[in-house]
Design a protein around this nucleic acid. Structure first.
Lengths: 226, 226
DNA sequence: AACTCAGTGTTGACACTGTCCACATTCTCG
DNA sequence: CGAGAATGTGGACAGTGTCAACACTGAGTT
């Protein structure tokens, strides 16, 4: 009955069998597409099943809930976000001194975060809608790569400390501050009062934000310049 | 049939008439209560009508859509948020010099924002869920009071400029940066990976955030302290 | 080779939702 | 008083998530 799409189902089996062979993956993939189109609310279990070419309820053999499927999709979304950040971070040209390089990499991950949110609004919203997944913030030292956006941010911030721009005693403040700021910019542009702002303005906002953060983080152990 | 609650329907009429007399207000009020309980998704048109004691569909005489009702509720939520910010801002003791006072007021509005989000998660989510309402960010000068959170923030930032702590050329950067940061902190604690963080940690995060922002905003026209 | 049985997919049902339609009642105004 | 505009009602339709009972298939055991 159902036509097998030409997409990348890892272990595609005979085309007209009763068993789909890879339903779970297919559901996630199709659900992902729907999430990209219309966000978490656009992912209807029945519609996903319909598109995959399987009856409603079939999904219940692989997911306890709609929530469970959505969680899986959210996880993929989070992964995509991480990849985007990683890529932008790696694109930073290497011909700079340590401080400039670390600063550029910090700006790169931040910019990637916002860019991703605006380029993939549905996926971004989905990733943050049902997060029974991600651990409630890993401790700030566990910074191996591809462990999530937070780990990536921490990596860059540690580089900034090493380079000598970020005073160590302000290091603990830095991660959540940066994250919150960038997330706030993303959300306000996505679902907030800044939605529809022209790109130039958004770009200016980003630059100014990073200027302030860099200024706020950098320098010696003393208080502010006042 | 429907029992009239003891709440504040502005123009309550005869108890057993065919016409409710104040349906619109009653719907908003009840919808608001449901939004507080379970966020925007918890506001079901039929259930609202049921609780008010009126048939489903009655709401359609007063709202074009579920979306329209939700928008009205969101507006009330925004108003509550503004009030909370206003109050915390007014509570700042007056016995300080101009700079300290302005800084304290900035921290107060920011803290109020986050506190409100965590104290009224459903309402906060609702306020930011369907915002076909609020104008896409008023220009940064239009800062009369009770015009919304953004106007309030601008007021405080202007005070900071007047007091001499915020360099005028960094003023345009300040509003969105502060807003985004505070909004990010709120959202990450509400729906993000920081959910469930203990209050002490959240408090520390807030303090650190404001330290960085203050440092980043303050001081002379020169670049960072590096 | 036949049988069993767990895994997987299907059909049918239920309760719930938003929304449209036609109808009923009431209020207001001429 | 009577007409017409407001307002509330009931029924219907399509859509949703979820549960329970049934059907098919494939892998392993005897």
């Amino acid at each position: 009955m159902w036509t097998v799409s030409t997409l990348s189902y890892a272990a595609q089996v005979s085309v007209t069998s009763y068993h789909h062979g890879n339903l779970r993956a297919a559901l996630v993939e199709t659900g992902l597409a729907m999430a990209r189109e219309s966000g978490p609310d656009g992912v209807a279990l029945r519609e996903v099943a319909r598109r995959v070419g399987v009856s409603h309820n079939a999904a219940y053999r692989h997911f306890a809930d709609r929530e469970a499927l959505l969680g899986e999709i959210a996880q993929v979304g989070m992964q995509r976000l991480t990849e985007a950040m990683h890529q932008r971070m790696a694109e930073v040209v290497p011909g700079l001194d340590a401080v400039a390089r670390a600063q550029a990499r910090l700006r790169a991950v931040g910019r990637a975060y916002v860019e991703f949110a605006l380029a993939e609004p549905g996926l971004f919203r989905t990733a943050f809608s049902a997060l029974a997944h991600a651990s409630p913030v890993e401790p700030a030292g566990t910074a191996e790569e591809d462990q999530g956006p937070y780990a990536l941010l921490n990596t860059v911030l540690d580089e900034l400390v090493e380079a000598g721009h970020l005073a160590p005693e302000r290091r603990p403040s830095a991660d959540v501050t940066c994250w919150a700021g960038v997330h706030g910019i993303a959300v306000l542009h996505l679902d907030g009062p800044l939605a529809g702002a022209p790109e130039a303005e958004r770009e200016a906002t980003m630059v100014r934000f990073f200027d302030i953060v860099e200024r706020g983080l950098g320098g010696g152990p003393g208080g502010g310049p006042g």
